[in-house]
């Protein structure tokens, strides 16, 4: 089966990437550019949500944001406050990072208790659990995926990016382990059309990338 440009386009959560610490105007410019595409989501950091959600919603598009990102290091009250504000500002989806230090310390109940109210706040909106596949052993990856399913996350996010790249093997592990119980968004290191196709073939239901325009352009070559 051939993976088409449209197949990939519909799966993309597009983020600005390249420009660290962008100004509001730079983010708006990026967001406006995504209106020309049929991406699943346009992603902005929490501070930029409100005006950009207005731009996206006016065009019938959706905004996703990130909570406790990129290191999974926000404490409980800060995480909840960040999430509540994001929803009030108009976020349609949220990618929520788990407390990866607690997880690596075997404190699984603590990780769950931290996330539970977050999932509840999301209601019918899609939230993805950022579980840091690249920091976990295979057994830990399975445990994190199981936890995400138990908590009611509709989707996983493999890695935060920033040098934490996702491998096809990590996605295959998640797909083989979870089947259709949870969606998988690959995140981290998806830069080209070939990357995107390889991950679609491995079973992802979403692709997070800061190279969305480039990937689309690759298909037209």
């Amino acid at each position: 089966m051939t993976v088409t440009k449209g197949d990939v386009e519909r799966l993309i959560d597009a983020s600005i990437g390249a420009a660290p610490a962008p100004t509001m105007d730079q983010v708006k410019e990026f967001v406006t550019k995504t209106l020309d595409y049929n991406f699943a989501m346009t992603l902005t950091e929490p501070f930029y949500i409100k005006p950009n959600a207005e731009i996206l919603h006016a065009a019938g598009k959706k905004l996703c944001t990130v909570i406790s990102y990129p290191l999974g290091s926000y404490t409980h009250e800060a995480k909840l406050a960040q999430l509540k504000q994001a929803l009030a500002d108009g976020a349609d989806e949220c990618d929520i990072a788990m407390d990866v230090s607690a997880f690596k310390s075997g404190q699984y109940d603590k990780v769950k208790e931290d996330l539970k109210p977050c999932v509840e706040l999301m209601g019918d909106k899609v939230c993805k659990l950022l579980y840091f596949a690249s920091l976990l052993t295979e057994d830990e990856q399975k445990r994190a995926i199981e936890m995400a399913i138990d908590l009611g996350f509709p989707m996983l996010k493999t890695n935060p990016g920033f040098g934490f790249s996702t491998t096809v093997d990590q996605v295959k592990l998640a797909h083989d382990f979870a089947g259709d119980k949870i969606g998988i968004m690959v995140s981290g290191g998806v830069r080209t059309k070939d990357d995107a196709i390889a991950f679609v073939e491995a079973g992802v239901s979403r692709i997070a990338t800061s190279a969305a325009f480039q990937i689309m352009a690759d298909f037209d070559k």
Binding site: A21, E45, P46, F47, T75, E77, A81, Q85
Partner: peptide, 15 residues
């Protein structure tokens, strides 16, 4: 990243 509202930074600090 520093891309949070002032209110959120305050809450994180207090915690």
């Amino acid at each position: 990243l520093g891309m949070d509202y002032p209110e959120i930074k305050e809450i994180e600090t207090k915690e």
